[in-house]
Structures are given as C-alpha cells and as structure tokens.
C-alpha cells in the first residue's frame, strides 16, 4: 500500500457502499477512522508501511452500517465517493465521510487480505 509520491498507486480495492443510518438528528456510519496527512503514521497499527499516511478504519461497530456493508477493521480507505483519501488530513476525511446531505458513502478500500487473495490467484495454487 505504500506508494511513491507522483507515481500511480496500485492497489486491490473493494467497493463498499455504506448506507448511513439515521440516528436522531444525525447520520451514523458505524466506524471510526484514523490517520491522515496530519497524523503521525508511525503509530498507525494497521498499516504495513509505517510511512503510510492514509486513512484507516480503526473500528467497526458490530451490526452498524459499515459492518453490514462489509467494511473491516484495518481497511485502508482509498476513496470516498470518488474523492481521494490517500492524501488528505484527518479532518478532511471526516468531513468527506460525514457529509450530512449524503445518505450513502461509497468507499474504495484496500486491505491486505484482498491483495493476498489476488496475489494468490495470480501465482497459481501451491501443491498439496
């Protein structure tokens, strides 16, 4: 998931469409994010590459909208509704995700297991 600035990013991504849940007067997404350009990436427990300043899913509420949509803890959010999330600050990501007028957020997320699955299928199957 690491990338060189200026170089295209290659990542296996999954589409996750989260239908926000109306709770009281605000919409909830059912997950938490961490990271961003303004945060210390070294402390990110989810990233493989400790220089990765991306936005990561830190928690997913059980039975929350995000979990229902298939979001998993540790996912790295690449895009939100088409907006890049790999080079944003924490607040920008929050803002993008918690827009009040949007009921649905469509995420592109990547996670290690996805990459592994793809790698696996590409490299053939080990003999057993």
């Amino acid at each position: 998931m690491a990338f060189v600035p200026g170089q295209p990013v290659t990542a296996v991504v999954q589409r996750v469409e989260i239908q926000k849940l109306c709770q009281g007067d605000h919409l909830i997404l059912g997950f938490s994010i961490g990271g961003g350009m303004d945060q210390d990436p070294v402390q990110n427990p989810y990233s493989e590459d400790k220089t990765d300043k991306g936005i990561y899913v830190t928690r997913v509420t059980p039975n929350g909208p995000a979990e229902k949509a298939g979001l998993m803890m540790g996912d790295k959010i690449m895009q939100v509704n088409g907006w890049d999330m790999t080079m944003v600050t924490h607040d920008q990501a929050r803002k993008r995700l918690t827009k009040k007028k949007e009921d649905v957020v469509r995420l592109l997320v990547t996670r290690k297991s996805l990459e592994d699955a793809v790698k696996h299928s590409m490299s053939g199957y080990p003999k057993h």
Partner: peptide, 18 residues
C-alpha cells in the same frame, strides 16, 4: 512541528460537534 499523534475519530459523531 511533528505530525499529530495517530488518533481515530468515530464517524458516528456529526462533524459539527467537533
């Protein structure tokens, strides 16, 4: 001048509140 500590924020809170 260092990046802020790695924090998380729940998206269940409306952004305005913060």
């Amino acid at each position: 001048i260092q990046p802020s500590p790695w924090t998380e924020s729940s998206l269940d809170q409306p952004f305005q509140k913060t």
